[in-house]
Design a protein around this nucleic acid. Structure first.
Length: 608
RNA sequence: GUCCCGGUAGCUCAGCAGGAUAGAGCAAGCGCCUCCUAAGCGCUAGGUCGGAGGUUCGAAUCCUCUCCGGGACACCA
């Protein structure tokens, strides 16, 4: 029976790259062998799947890594934890990278690593450069990450910004640990909201033609709609003009006039369609769509967020995918008719209530498109599918999963990650935002105010599903209070030291430095060595748990270790061997800071 | 009403697939530039981990109940 773990173990033994990632795996393997040996002796029952739990110690007096294995297995072995620990330790194969193994406390097995293991790691960092911290854990499996996917009815706002930063970072992290990642934006280019946008554009156009228009309360009022109306006017002059009176013929009153704003706007949409005719209407519609989508694309690109695909919702309707999805659901026997509409019995799969997929008027719902979209995703053969949604969609998760359960057994491949809104603070005060009046802070405004680096970093500083306070003043401040500057400054300081080296006419020989790493004996150096070796573990954990904040926090710690070291010791010393060793160490630190910042989409400047 | 998220130092938060004395940054107080960027560093002080039960060798971490705060619950997209 070939398990994943033993396959991994075989790889480790086969090609032993001495980096600390494999150090953890190495120790894990040693424990595995010990367990197998106890199984052979009959001390532990054979053929029991055993999880090796191995973690970094908090306190260095407990060594470098600790395992609670003996405490976990003591019941199976019918012995006391410390006695079992004794037997496990006795059965551990020797390793030149472990100087000492101790049993402590209630039965922890503590591993003390050889300093040389850490020294080799520094050399690895310098050799691997940008690749340090990357791994093939994902075994080139295909993952799709869909994120942002905001309706193209207006510019991205700060809420979308968090989804963008988070989704992009999760995608990059997954890529770093060896997945092949497909980044996708689902473009809602069909449906009522888009019609309302088209009508809004057309109304602004008519105003520019000189018509007097009472603008609908439910229309899109942002300035960008004016701009699109103006492009339309530049392109067509008055060719698409109709008298306001004609347009408003038979349209029920708007809310301020005692009517219903929804009925009012829907009527305006159908009047616009009728007056313009299908071709011209489509032109207005597409101009609105394209202008806004272009704006969104540019915004995201400037934010360092890249996509492999912009997937059109409309295409699902036009190529029959939606129809096909509905048919398949019907065939599965989970669809019924009620009140003239087609309902999906999602309650069969744990949803709270059944959902409409085809409306009374024959139109399929947004939900139907979403089912088709997810069916499409799974058909494309991804091993994993990740949806990053705004937390306000959380009620949506059960019904999408229900649909997938009805259609296939691949629900487990889908992860929906919900991102909470960020609340902005300026001068200690909440920045008020309301989407309906169009008075929201756009992502672009945020980027202009605090810069891309601070925005990207702050957005991923918290777990995604957690509410977040975004302090604009802090994000802008150029002081150590601001974690972004703090980390970047550490990076810049190393670069500065290396510049000083030349000015002082001193040499740095990295090869010699590699041989002299044993000269690093200060506590500050020890702390740096340990934390540098943790980086691959952090990347792995942040990626697999979809938690970029782990990396953000780690980088702050690493920067702190460096600043402390910088203040306590001189790097450009006369002693050549020591100087080479120290420069190797800080160059490695710079590399790890740069790698980590790159994964977060934050720049790593050489001077500040 | 149902469902999600949160309640850890004065503030903002880590820690939560159980582990060895609960961490960081601000803010407060005291120090450190003839020295590689003081956009930095050190020290001091600060907590019955919302509350109550339970599970066990061991709980901030898991389970149940409860209190407080935020959010979501369309034949909208």
């Amino acid at each position: 029976m070939e398990t994943v773990e033993s396959a991994q173990a075989a790889r480790i033994i086969g090609a032993f790259a001495p980096s600390l990632t494999s150090m953890k795996q190495h120790l894990s393997q040693l424990l595995h062998q010990a367990v197998e040996s106890l199984q052979a002796q009959g001390i532990l029952p054979p053929d029991q799947p055993i999880d090796i739990n191995l973690e970094r110690t908090r306190d260095r007096s407990h060594g470098d890594f600790a395992s609670n294995l003996a405490m976990v297995l003591c019941k199976l072995a019918h012995s006391k934890p410390r006695e079992l620990a004794d037997k496990l330790v006795a059965a551990l194969p020797a390793s030149d990278r472990v100087t000492r193994v101790e049993i402590a406390g209630p039965g922890f097995i503590n591993f003390f690593l050889a300093p040389a293991a850490y020294h080799e790691n520094v050399t690895q960092i310098l050799q691997q450069g940008e690749r340090y911290g990357r791994s093939d854990l994902g075994q080139s499996k295909l993952v799709q990450v869909e994120f942002v996917s905001a309706n193209p009815t207006g510019p991205l706002h700060v809420g979308h910004g968090r989804g963008a930063a988070y989704g992009a970072t999760v995608a990059d992290l997954l890529e770093a640990v060896g997945y092949r990642v497909h980044r996708e934006y689902y473009v809602n280019d069909a449906g009522r909201q888009m019609d309302i946008l088209a009508a809004s554009v057309y109304l602004r156009y008519l105003e520019l033609c000189g018509e007097e228009i009472p603008f609908p309360s439910n229309g899109y009022k942002g300035d960008y709609v004016w701009d699109i109306g103006a492009s339309l006017h530049r392109a067509h002059g008055d060719a698409l003009r109709h008298p306001a009176q004609t347009l408003f013929e038979g349209v029920p009153p708007d809310e301020p006039d005692g009517g219903d704003k929804e009925l009012h706007i829907d009527a305006l949409v159908s009047r616009s369609k009728k007056l313009l005719g299908p071709d011209s209407y489509r032109e207005v519609f597409d101009l609105g769509l394209e202008s806004i989508l272009e704006n969104i694309r540019r915004d995201l690109a400037e934010f360092g967020v890249r996509y492999d695909e912009w997937f059109s919702e409309r295409s699902l309707t036009s190529n029959g995918s939606v129809q096909r999805a509905i048919e398949r659901l019907k065939l599965s026997g989970h669809v019924y008719e009620k009140g003239g509409a087609q309902w999906f019995r999602s309650t069969d799969f744990g949803d709270e209530k059944d959902r409409v997929i085809v409306r009374e008027n024959g139109q399929s719902t947004y939900f139907a498109s979403d089912i088709a979209y997810h069916m499409n995703k799974l058909e494309r053969g991804y091993d994993r599918v990740i949806d990053v949604w705004g937390a306000d969609h959380h009620g949506y998760v059960p019904r999408v999963k229900a649909a997938l359960m009805a259609l296939c057994d691949d629900v487990a491949k889908l992860d929906v990650l919900l991102v909470q809104f960020a609340i902005l603070y300026r001068g200690g005060q909440k920045v008020q935002m309301s989407t309906r009046s169009g008075e929201f802070v756009t992502l672009r405004e945020l980027r202009q105010e605090v810069g891309n680096d601070a925005a990207r970093f702050f957005y991923v500083l918290r777990k995604c599903e957690q509410h977040m306070d975004f302090d604009l003043d802090l994000a802008k401040s150029q002081s150590s209070d601001n974690p972004v500057y703090y980390i970047q400054y550490a990076h810049a300081r190393v670069a500065s030291v290396l510049r000083q080296l030349q000015e002082k006419g001193l040499q740095w020989n990295p090869e010699a430095g590699s041989r002299e790493l044993g000269r690093l004996s200060e506590n500050h150096e020890d702390a740096l060595l340990v934390n540098l070796s943790r980086y691959p573990e952090i990347v792995e954990s942040a990626a697999l748990q979809h938690e970029p904040h782990q990396l953000a926090h780690y980088l702050r710690e690493l920067a702190n270790d460096f600043h402390t070291y910088y203040n306590a010791h001189q790097f450009l010393v006369e002693d050549e061997a020591l100087r080479n060793a120290r420069l190797n160490l800080i160059a490695a630190t710079r590399q790890v800071l740069a790698n980590g910042l790159a994964l977060l989409g934050v720049s790593a400047p050489d001077s500040m």
